[in-house]
Simulated scan of single mutants.
Amino acid sequence: MSNSNEPMTGPVTSADRPAPIQAIPVRHWGQMIAGVIVIALLAAFLYAVATNQNIDWSIVGENLFNSTILSGLWITISLTILSMIIGIVLGIGLAIMRLSPNRVLNSVAAGYIWIFRGTPQLVQLLLWFNLALFFPRLGIGDFSVDTNTVITAFVAALLGLGLNEGAYMAEIVRGGILSVDHGQSEASMALGMRRQKTMFKIVLPQAMRVIIPPMGNDLITMLKMTSLVTVIAAPDLLNRAQTISVRNFYIFELLIVASIWYLVLTTIATIIQSRLEKRFARGIAARPSTRARVLKNLKPGRVESIAAVTEPNATPEDHGVKS
């Protein structure tokens, strides 16, 4: 009499194979109901806005591509790009100074960040715009120029936005630099690389993966913060929309026009940020560990012996190695 626990011999037929598992997805009724409610509320809101008799949508369409609006749009884009360039350059320099063992550089950077992060950006814009009240002329010795000639509304906006952004960017870059393993710097300096070259060739490229997400968020914030320059009469997008609304008395319609363009620019900035994040994250998720790379280059017998010692329950296949 044969033992029922003995393994079966002979060819395996389809009747001997176990039936495939029928996976039934779990229905999340709560999420479905919540989604329907949110869609219904959003549709009701859009319908109420679209059919509102107090909003003249023809005015929105007429002014969406108005030359005055487009000129303000260009000023907004220019302020955003130039202010971010100033902020990034300042931020990298201040972050390196904050991490420097030199106490003077460290203190200067810390003081700069403290002042510009501790005062409202609107106050900084007003101070730069009214700089002529304290310094009527700028220059050295006999060479000087009228402050109002140099510090125009656009220049005051650029200084107020760019210098303030530098303080916030410094902390973003510093956090990215600290995220890189210190052994990277030690290894490069052991090979004879100078500290400056190590920072720009080894550390910063690796830190970009951590820096890009908050930097993209700052770019979007900067794009919207340019609307503050309206208080100093800089001809940005919001200022141009308000100028038109003063003439035709369609205040809400022109605000909708400005909001549409801000949404378009924010969407473009979000797409660029997403592409940059993917580019700097290439190879990070799929990069094998050092242990897996070592095991891959060993003979199968050697792999089994190492795995038996380090992980008794693991197999070579668990590390991507074929025995």
Rank of each mutant, 00 (worst) to 15 (best):
A110M: 03
G111W: 01
G111Y: 00
G111V: 00
I113Q: 03
I113A: 11
I113V: 15
W114M: 12
I115V: 15
F116Y: 12
T119L: 13
P120K: 05
Q121S: 13
V123H: 01
V123M: 14
Q124I: 14
L126R: 04
L126E: 04
L127D: 05
L131F: 15
A132Q: 12
F135E: 04
F135M: 14
P136C: 09
P136Y: 08
P136F: 06
P136M: 05
P136D: 08
R137T: 13
R137N: 12
L138D: 09
I140A: 12
I140S: 09
G141W: 12
G141T: 08
G141Y: 13
G141D: 10
D142A: 12
D142S: 14
F143W: 15
S144G: 00
S144E: 09
S144Y: 11
V145G: 11
T147L: 05
T147Y: 11
T149N: 14
T149Q: 14
T149A: 15
V150D: 07
I151A: 06
T152F: 10
A153N: 13
F154K: 08
V155Y: 09
A156H: 05
L161N: 06
L161Q: 03
G162F: 07
G162Q: 03
L163S: 04
L163A: 04
L163E: 04
E165V: 00
E165A: 13
E165I: 00
E165L: 13
G166F: 02
G166H: 01
A167F: 07
Y168W: 11
Y168F: 15
M169H: 06
M169L: 14
A170T: 03
E171S: 12
E171W: 09
I172W: 02
V173I: 15
G175V: 04
G176H: 02
L178G: 00
S179R: 01
D181P: 01
D181F: 00
G183D: 02
G183S: 03
Q184M: 05
S185L: 00
E186Y: 07
E186L: 09
A187M: 01
S188C: 08
S188K: 00
M189S: 04
L191Q: 14
